[in-house]
Computed example of a mutant assay.
Amino acid sequence: MEKKDELIKIFSKNIREILNRVAVDYDEVQEIRLRVAAPLLMVYKNEEYYISRLGQLSRDCRDAYLVSRGELKETMEYMSNYSLYAFEEEMKQGFLTIQGGHRIGVAGKTILDESGIKTMKFISFINVRLSHQVKGCASPVLPYLYDKEEILHTLIISPPRCGKTTLLRDLIRQISNGTKDHAGMTVGVVDERSEIGACYQGMPQNELGIRTDILDCCPKARGMMMLIRTMSPRVIAVDEIGSREDLEAMEYVMNCGCKLIATVHGSSIDDLKQKPVLRRLVDERIFERYIVLNNKGKIGNIDQIYDSRGTQLYKAEVHRMGKRWNSEECMAYG
Rank of each mutant, 00 (worst) to 15 (best):
R173M: 03
L66N: 07
L293V: 02
A64H: 13
S232P: 05
K259F: 10
Y146R: 04
D213M: 09
E2N: 15
I172E: 04
D307M: 10
Q56M: 13
K45H: 10
Q201G: 11
I156D: 00
R33W: 08
I123P: 10
Y49P: 13
T165G: 05
P160V: 00
F125P: 07
C217L: 14
R280Q: 15
H319Y: 09
I10M: 13
D270I: 02
P276C: 08
T166N: 05
S267V: 06
S243E: 02
L7H: 12
I291A: 00
C330V: 02
S308R: 13
M321K: 10
C217F: 14
Y333H: 07
R62S: 14
V141K: 00
D170F: 00
A237D: 06
E317G: 07
L7Y: 14
I196L: 15
E2S: 15
M203Q: 12
D147S: 12
L112G: 10
R16L: 13
H319P: 06
P160E: 00
P140N: 05
E6K: 15
M76L: 15
G100F: 14
N46K: 15
M224P: 09
M1F: 14
P143C: 02
L152Q: 06
I302D: 00
S139W: 00
L168N: 06
P276K: 10
S83W: 12
G242V: 01
L313H: 05
L281Y: 05
Q56K: 14
G55S: 01
A37R: 13
A23Y: 12
R211M: 01
M42P: 10
G266C: 01
I32H: 10
